Amino acid sequence: MPAQQDLKKPVVTRLTYDQAHQSVCRVLSNPPDDPWTQERQRIGTRIRDARMAHNLTQETVVLAIPMNRSYYQDIEAGRANPTLNTLLDIAATIGIPLADLVR
């Protein structure tokens, strides 16, 4: 008997631009469970908490870097997989060490 097909919905992606609109990044709309999802969410929560503790808006951060706002929102929500340079830019803009975001 042949194996049953996986009837899950296909993975859907949407496009967003990275820093300074230089290239397009694919962000999963319904990311599959992977071991890094929870860690990305924890980092995103730390970024959001640090930003709010310093009384900064998302708009202030994305204008200072510069970065697409929807991409930044995806980082805070744990849906995006930012580069090290992006995390360094965010940490510097908020005014905290990178280690505080990834601890």
Rank of each mutant, 00 (worst) to 15 (best):
M1L: 09
A3T: 08
Q5L: 13
Q5A: 12
Q5N: 11
P10V: 04
P10C: 02
V12K: 10
V12L: 00
T13W: 13
T13A: 11
R14V: 12
R14M: 01
L15Q: 14
T16W: 07
T16K: 12
Y17E: 05
Y17G: 01
D18F: 00
Q19K: 06
Q19F: 00
A20C: 11
Q22D: 04
V24F: 03
V24A: 03
C25E: 02
V27A: 10
V27I: 12
L28N: 07
L28A: 14
L28W: 11
P31G: 05
P32K: 08
P35R: 14
W36I: 05
T37N: 07
T37R: 11
Q38G: 11
E39H: 08
R40H: 15
Q41L: 01
I43A: 10
G44P: 01
G44W: 03
G44S: 04
G44N: 07
T45Y: 10
T45N: 10
R46V: 04
I47N: 02
M52Q: 08
M52S: 03
A53H: 04
H54G: 02
N55K: 11
N55Q: 08
L56Y: 07
T57H: 01
T60K: 12
T60R: 08
T60D: 10
V61R: 03
L63D: 11
A64C: 02
A64Q: 07
I65V: 09
M67A: 09
R69H: 02
S70I: 12
Y71H: 14
Q73T: 05
D74N: 13
D74I: 01
D74K: 06
E76C: 02
A77N: 01
R79Q: 10
A80T: 10
N81V: 09
P82G: 01
I90C: 09
I90N: 00
A91T: 12
A91Q: 08
I94R: 05
G95T: 03
I96D: 08
I96E: 11
I96G: 00
P97K: 08
A99P: 09
L101Q: 12
